[in-house]
């Protein structure tokens, strides 16, 4: 029953596909303009779900910063089995990179602070402007370091494994934690800052980027729905109906005279 597992493990994609097809079918099959809009909405929603499903990491929490206290380090290894078990998530390669990258990061932060430890000014600056700089350097390292992880992430034959974490966006998350830690670090000193960074990196977050993307897409979808419904209202005002075939008859009658109506009725019967 391998194929059964194969199908079942990808249930999230089936949901997306079914929703998508339902939506498209409604758009094309329904003559009522409002129903068309509903179908369009359904279609778009399926895409939202698809984006969310690829951003999910098993065991990952919502991509909201939880601070250094939350200790998830222990659970990490358990929840990330090897990628030979399909349907489960972050394969080992990525696991490694998850550990490695933050290490590099904290080293980096240490370096940065090493020379001028104790200076309040630096901490302040760091919290504001230099974050981006750090991020850039960080990426430069991060991009170089986890190639192994990446390969294992994205090359499985059915790379469709939805809940895969993504290196680049792991990276995004970590600088965030750096930022907050710095606030503490200002008092606690450079070492505790590094500790905090290290601890925070142990927390697994769901990939935040798809969420952000989908927030944008939702806004677009809402706008589209609004414009579409507004148009439907205007069409009803102008024609007195929102049924597509009736609209067509009205237009034809306006252009070709009453015979068009007779023809349309003849065709209907």
């Amino acid at each position: 029953m391998e194929w059964f597992d194969f199908v079942l493990e990808r249930y999230n994609y089936w949901i997306v596909i079914i929703l998508m097809m339902t939506g498209l079918y409604i758009v094309f099959a329904r003559g009522n303009l409002v129903k068309k809009i509903v179908g369009l909405n359904l279609f778009q929603t399926s895409v939202f779900i698809y984006y969310l499903t690829i951003g999910k990491i098993a065991g990952g929490t919502a991509p909201i910063y939880v601070g250094g206290e939350l200790d998830h380090g222990g659970g990490h290894g358990e929840e990330a089995p090897g990628h030979d078990a399909p349907g489960h998530d972050a394969p080992q390669g990525s696991d490694a990179s998850l550990h490695e990258t933050p290490e590099g990061a904290s080293d980096h932060v240490n370096d940065l602070f090493g020379g001028e430890a104790g200076s309040d000014k630096i901490a302040n600056d760091f919290a504001s402007n230099d974050l981006k700089e750090t991020l850039k350097d960080f990426q430069a390292q991060g991009a170089a370091a986890p190639t192994g992880g990446e390969a294992s992430l994205h090359t499985p034959p059915e790379g469709v494994d939805g809940k895969i974490a993504n290196d680049a966006f792991q990276n995004i998350k970590k600088p965030e934690s750096i930022e907050f830690s710095i606030g503490d670090g200002h008092e606690a000193g450079a070492n505790s800052l590094a500790d905090a960074v290290h601890q925070a990196s142990e927390v697994i977050y769901t990939n935040p980027l798809p969420h952000v993307l989908i927030l944008t897409a939702i806004v677009v979808g809402v706008a589209t729905t609004a414009v579409g419904l507004a148009l439907a209202v205007r069409i009803r005002e102008a024609y007195g109906t929102i049924e597509e075939d009736e609209l067509e008859v009205i237009d034809n009658v306006a252009e070709f005279g009453e015979e068009a109506r007779a023809r349309a009725e003849g065709a209907a019967s």
């Binding site: 369009l40 279609f43 895409v47 790379g159 680049a168 966006f169 589209t224």
Partner: peptide, 29 residues
Amino acid sequence: TASFNYLVMGTIGATFFVIGIGLLYQATG
């Protein structure tokens, strides 16, 4: 009606496009 039809077709097109982007993102990150 012209605008409405354009809206429906345009949105389907854009959504197809965004699905494509999603797939690429899934494959490359």
